[in-house]
Simulated assay, not measured.
Amino acid sequence: MRELTKAIQETAQKLLQDKEVELVVGFAKGSLPLRNTPCFIRQPEEAQKLVWGYGCENNLATYLRQRPEKLAVVAKGCDSRSIIELIKENQINREKLVIIGIPCQGMIDRKKVTRLLAGRELLKAEVKDGQVVLMGKGFSETVPCEQLLHDTCLTCQHPNPVLFDIMLGEPVPVKEADSFADLANFEAKAPAEKRAYLIQELSRCIRCYACRQACPMCFCEECFADCSMPQWLSKSSLNVQDNVFFQAVRVLHLAGRCVDCGACDRACPMGIDLRTLTHKMVRDVQELFGYTAGVSLEERAPLAAPVSSSTLNHF
């Protein structure tokens, strides 16, 4: 990770010095262990702030839409896939973007760390040789890194950037595991059980819209949830039926566009299982249309193309 951090710093510094870009979007060290934060660098001497590690979980494609200046971005696999879809939707000007590709080993889920520590405060953490050492007042605990990765990282089939201008680091081997194995329990439920599960989960929703704001593919100037004419959702009270409706429409709007980066799931302050909805939608799009979002600049998204009679026969 130190080598990658140094390479990112040197690359960003050179791009800014040579005036190839006006802005570099990457990560800086966060205020908490295992947590890094999006960082925006405009001066060559500021490039030393940039870091890379297991806490670079944010999808930086969120910050690239409709930018007027020429910029560079540090992009892992899921970031690059979102960038591809945003280019196809005319939200990013490819000619004004330099993509610094970084192979991704996976990102550590702080929620899993919190559950593991069971109330103990994490003061320091180190990652070495596939092990995470968690340290605090009066304790030190070593855990295999694989146990703490985000669920999206455990099933990721595109850990390496799909699109890049500059590639740093060696490619990461692609996992051979079934990328949809986590859906088995949900799919085994009867329709009534599925609905009951979703109602149970979404009854905790406070409609803060953090999931929408974190998603790089949610960029409508006015979301249907904010409309007043017509008014799709109640604005004066919360109820579970409106919550289900909001999430159902949000997920359908992402059909053929979602790259399963997990940004919505991570952003939820209530810990709602949003990924089951999005991941099932990703699988359904693959099965119905043979399309995987964010792997090709040339291939049209299925819902942006004319529907064939053979596809209609699936419904």
Rank of each mutant, 00 (worst) to 15 (best):
M1R: 10
R2A: 14
L4P: 04
A7W: 06
I8M: 04
Q9R: 06
E10D: 14
T11F: 03
A12H: 04
Q17S: 14
V21G: 03
V21D: 03
F27M: 04
F27L: 02
P33L: 05
L34G: 00
R35C: 10
T37L: 09
T37G: 00
P38T: 04
C39R: 08
C39Q: 10
Q43I: 12
Q43P: 07
Q48C: 06
Q48W: 04
Q48K: 10
K49Q: 14
L50S: 04
W52N: 11
Y54S: 09
G55C: 08
N58L: 02
N58S: 07
L60G: 01
T62Q: 11
T62E: 09
Q66M: 13
Q66G: 08
E69C: 08
K70S: 12
K70A: 12
A72L: 02
I84V: 13
K88D: 06
E89V: 09
L97N: 05
L97P: 01
I100A: 04
P103Y: 07
I108G: 00
I108H: 05
D109G: 00
K111S: 13
K111D: 14
V113H: 01
T114G: 00
G119E: 00
G119P: 03
G119S: 02
R120P: 00
L122N: 07
L123W: 05
V127Y: 05
G130I: 06
V132E: 01
V132I: 01
V132Y: 02
V133S: 12
L134Q: 00
G138M: 05
E141H: 07
T142Q: 09
E146H: 08
Q147E: 15
Q147C: 04
Q147V: 00
T152A: 12
Q157M: 09
Q157L: 13
Q157F: 07
N160V: 07
V162T: 10
L163V: 13
M167E: 10
V172W: 05
V172L: 00
V174W: 02
K175D: 06
K175L: 13
D178A: 06
K189P: 01
K189M: 15
A190W: 01
P191G: 08
A192K: 11
K194M: 12
R195P: 00
A196I: 01
Y197C: 05
I199E: 15
S203Q: 13
C205V: 09
C208Q: 09
C211P: 07
Q213N: 11
Q213P: 00
A214E: 08
P216C: 07
M217R: 15
F219G: 06
F219E: 05
E222V: 15
C223F: 15
A225V: 15
A225M: 12
S228D: 14
S228A: 13
P230V: 05
L233T: 08
S234N: 15
K235S: 14
L238D: 07
V240L: 03
V240T: 13
N243Q: 07
F245L: 14
Q247Y: 10
L254K: 10
R257F: 04
C261P: 00
G262R: 01
A267L: 05
G271D: 03
G271R: 08
I272Y: 06
D273W: 09
R275N: 12
T276P: 08
T278H: 13
T278E: 15
K280Y: 12
M281N: 11
R283E: 15
E287H: 03
Y291L: 01
A301C: 09
L312K: 10
N313F: 08
N313L: 12
F315M: 09
